[in-house]
């Protein structure tokens, strides 16, 4: 019991395997390398473009890699931002506020709901979870129109909350959290119950610290959505608009902006990628329990 259950999982990770022929491995790794190049080269190209002087972005024949790296694009970007009517820091604040509030709220709400679904027995449990699973099977596009009406009834149009509040109830997060919590040993919870702890206390002091890998997974999945939000059509005021929205105006601003566009794209993509690099092992640990049981 002193051993966290995640260790059991790690001990299953293998390195050497039986039944492996050299040529089989060679062939498969070649395939992997080829497609890996397909995946990564567009990103490499995007990164290199950010450091290319304009005459290199428009060079014939085009080059993948930068020859004379420069920070001019970033300086251009700064100048461009300095001229914008709404100070650029405001867009950054908007996106940070939406992302942080949305992510924190989502982790707490989804975990609180996942705990009884994973560990309690009560009437309606199965039906509630089934509805959540069904909701994984369609995208928000389906509900866009009525969602606008609901937002307007609630008076949330043109405010951050129109993006933040629905993000709290993102269903993939609840699903993954519930599947992960199911693996927690019951003995851990029983012991606390015998000590007289309430369900809320058990949730906060025992369950939550034990599902840290799953938090990180919810954080990165939700972060990536909110970081890239353009306001979902709910936000009109320029001073409330998101970073992504402002960046798109530069990106689709035409040839003169090609350098600055590459720079802003690099900045925007580096944040979720960095976050993933640092949380990868925890995310994989959570995903191990993602399976759908019959």
């Amino acid at each position: 019991m002193s051993m966290p259950f995640s260790f059991k999982l790690r001990s299953k990770l293998r390195s050497k395997r039986v039944n492996r022929s050299f040529w089989g491995s060679f062939g498969l790794f070649t395939v992997l390398a080829f497609f890996g190049a397909f995946m990564i080269l567009p990103l490499v190209y995007a990164i290199n473009n950010a450091f290319k002087p304009l005459d290199e972005i428009f060079l014939f024949p085009p080059t993948l890699f930068v020859r004379n790296p420069t920070f001019n694009n970033f300086i251009d970007l700064m100048n461009l931002l300095g001229e914008s009517w709404v100070p650029f820091s405001r867009y950054i604040f908007n996106t940070l506020f939406i992302t942080l509030t949305g992510v924190i709220g989502h982790v707490i709400f989804a975990s609180a709901a996942a705990f009884p679904l994973a560990k309690h027995r009560f009437p309606g449990k199965k039906a509630l979870f089934q509805v959540v699973v069904l909701s994984l099977m369609f995208t928000p596009a389906v509900t866009a129109i009525p969602n606008y009406m609901v937002m307007s009834w609630l008076g949330l149009i043109d405010s951050y909350w129109a993006v933040i509040v629905p993000a709290f109830s993102y269903s993939l997060g609840l699903y993954l959290m519930k599947q992960f919590m199911e693996q927690m040993p019951d003995a851990l919870l029983e012991a606390a119950k015998i000590d007289g702890a309430s369900e809320y206390r058990i949730f906060w002091t025992i369950v939550m610290p034990n599902v840290k890998p799953a938090w990180l997974t919810l954080v990165i999945l939700q972060f990536q959505i909110l970081w890239g939000t353009d306001g979902n059509g709910f936000i009109y005021s320029e001073q409330l608009k998101s970073l992504h929205f402002a960046a798109n105006q530069i990106i689709y601003g035409g040839i003169a902006r090609a350098g600055a566009a590459a720079a802003v794209a690099l900045i925007l993509m580096s944040v979720p990628i960095t976050l993933f690099v640092f949380s990868q092992s925890k995310i994989i640990e959570t995903m191990a329990s993602s399976g759908m049981k019959e």
Partner: peptide
């Protein structure tokens, strides 16, 4: 099991309003 429902409520209310109702 009222504790279970209390824990579920915040999420499920939002889920109902922003997913099921629409």
């Amino acid at each position: 099991n009222k504790h279970s429902y209390v824990l579920l409520a915040p999420y499920m209310i939002l889920f109902a309003v922003f997913t099921v109702l629409p």
